[in-house]
Nucleic acid binder design. Structure first.
Lengths: 194, 194
DNA sequence: TCAGACATGTAACGTGTTACATGATTCT
DNA sequence: AGAATCATGTAACACGTTACATGTCTGA
């Protein structure tokens, strides 16, 4: 539902071909809205058909293998501006790891602590990456409106990673503690904790 | 990819019919993995066919309109336990509001601040709801393993809401500030900020 | 000329969403 | 008997993912 708008934004920032867009979705915009090249080509087709974008002129006939650059038309820009202000509720959380914690309550926590540790490492790496970008792109002041908004978005990413790191640390501690209890049970019999 | 496991977890906690599951997905489990009744019925069919669950016996012939309760079979429990420990990377963030901030950089922030305010109110309400649940279900100590894991999950929800509230507050301030700049531009001419 | 990178595209499938259809049960 | 509610189900479509197919361009 948001992909077309993500593409319009990217194209307004810089007219591009499908593959260039794909590359840009592997970083930058892709940090908070990822897409594969198949999705992007599919969506570019729809956007072109609806008159929101158009292919830049160039000698063409066989479309396959030929580079094709797109730019945003006024209609597309208007749609995007309308979407920015549109009333649209935030989506509820959807996180598989939380679900797994819940499942562990009924089938046991066997193997979960390792997975939590792994996620912790991944989130720490992601945080480091974001911090490096922040340092590089928003190091000193004198910021334009675009910069300030981009920095705001990046800060959301950073704080989200910080949240996960904090939560995963307490989860790991809790799981270790439960594991210790289970180990004690194995020695003394489960009745000791019941 | 996680829905079948969410359903297995719910059924292990308590054998249920499709509609009962749907209701439970409107709260509790649904707070971090939502699903509509159509998804649930579809998935129940697949799970039954694969031998992970079975319908509890009862006089039947026409399946329509008749209540049908399911319980988890050993094979289903084993699959769930395996999933709990499985290596599975966290999904990258996918948030439309962040995308809208980014889009605002190219088409202007017109109307965005109101939307940010609205989201702020929604997240505050959600936080209040989670806090009430925490108070009610995890008020005093003496907690079983299941309780401790559930509380851990709830705390993730609570801290996530707190993160959003904090971030949205700074976003609102930033947008107000940009708006003030734009208003000044309107009086003095854009060159004043360029 | 042929390998490798660039570039666009098809096909098939799984999951999520919306709208609608149908039957059973309960209460008035 | 009719309305409301409970309960299961179909159909169609949108979006996301994976695998594969096809064509072009560049340099060894």
């Amino acid at each position: 539902m948001s992909l077309p708008y993500a593409i319009l934004t990217a194209l307004l920032e810089k007219p591009s071909s499908g593959l260039e867009l794909t590359r840009r979705f592997d970083k930058s915009i892709g940090y908070f809205w990822s897409a594969t090249h198949q999705q992007i080509y599919r969506e570019l087709g729809k956007l072109e058909e609806s008159g929101a974008i158009r292919a830049l002129p160039g000698p063409r006939q066989p479309t396959r293998g030929q580079k094709k650059e797109y730019e945003v038309l006024p209609a597309g820009r208007d749609e995007l501006a309308a979407w920015v202000a549109r009333i649209e509720d935030p989506k509820p959380i959807r996180d598989a790891l939380l679900l797994r914690l819940r499942a562990a309550g009924v089938v046991g926590t066997e193997g979960l602590e390792a997975e939590v540790r792994r996620h912790l490492a991944l989130h720490r790496a992601q945080l480091a990456e974001y911090r490096a970008i922040e340092e590089r792109d928003f190091g000193e002041g004198g910021k334009s409106e675009v910069d300030r908004l981009r920095h705001l978005v990046l800060r959301a990413g950073i704080d989200l990673e910080r949240f996960w790191i904090g939560w995963l640390e307490t989860a790991r501690a809790e799981l270790a503690d439960l594991g210790a209890g289970a180990a004690a049970d194995a020695r003394t019999g489960p009745a000791a904790t019941a």
